[in-house]
Write a protein that binds this DNA or RNA. Sequence first.
DNA 1: CTGTAGACCTGGAGGC
DNA 2: TGCCTCCAGGTCTACA
Length: 271
Amino acid sequence: MPELPEVEITCIGLKPILQKSISNIIIRNPSLRWPIPSHLKKTLPNQKILHIKRRAKYIIIQFEKASLMIHLGMSGRLEILDKETPPEKHDHVDIAFHNSKNILRYTDPRRFGSILWVDGDIKNHFLISKLGPEPLESLFTRDYLFSKTHNKNSPIKNIIMDSHIVVGVGNIYASESLFKAGVLPSKLGKDISLSECTKIVKYIKTTLIKAIELGGSSLKDFYNVNGQSGYFQQTYNVYGMTGKPCRKCKTIIENKKIGQRSSFFCIKCQS
DNA sequence: CTGTAGACCTGGAGGC
DNA sequence: TGCCTCCAGGTCTACA
């Protein structure tokens, strides 16, 4: 489920728990990407949620002196549910609140996600401190991208998916953005021109923004029905379209592994 | 330092 | 039905 738009939409959907004070946490299975700290049982109760924000694909739930840093991995989900909702197999964590009939539930079949406790400023955390700029913020420009590509021997798709260069571009939106930019995912960084960087940056931004808007449009039933966003209703230009005709030129969409990941492209529209 | 392969883990789809 | 293989939205770590 989660690429950056889904994480953003999840953050927005968490607004109802702002200012709430935690009463209890139930950890059914602490084995995520990193173990969930067992001290949360003692640390978390009576902490008040002051802010909720996103950095890269991390959801940061801020308390007075520390934060919970939550990553959804490949298959994670956060939902606000009635506290009587019985837990299922992959519902690893519940957080309950004072004076509330709701809980925040973390579900993650593959357990690639993480729930970490960070004292002080998260900027200094080892998972955050070396991250590149946010794709939707002003630091992510043509010139910045060019400075990171012009001397690189790896495919452009790998470069834009490298969180040390720019965060939040996952496998779906990497393929989609490169299609719109007219650049083959396998093209090496050093062969990418300045004007191609202009397009890549532009279409990463517009693709992500559009996805957030689509997800946002279904926000009202985001957490009380099935936790899915507009994400699943989107149709893609190339992602998952292997063997189908390109929407622009009817050429058959191809799929090639680049950097271990499936990559989709139109050989005629992209070069 | 750079670039790539492997690792983590579960479930669903498709072939036989 | 059952077993096997392959595939899946992420990203850290180890190694050449």
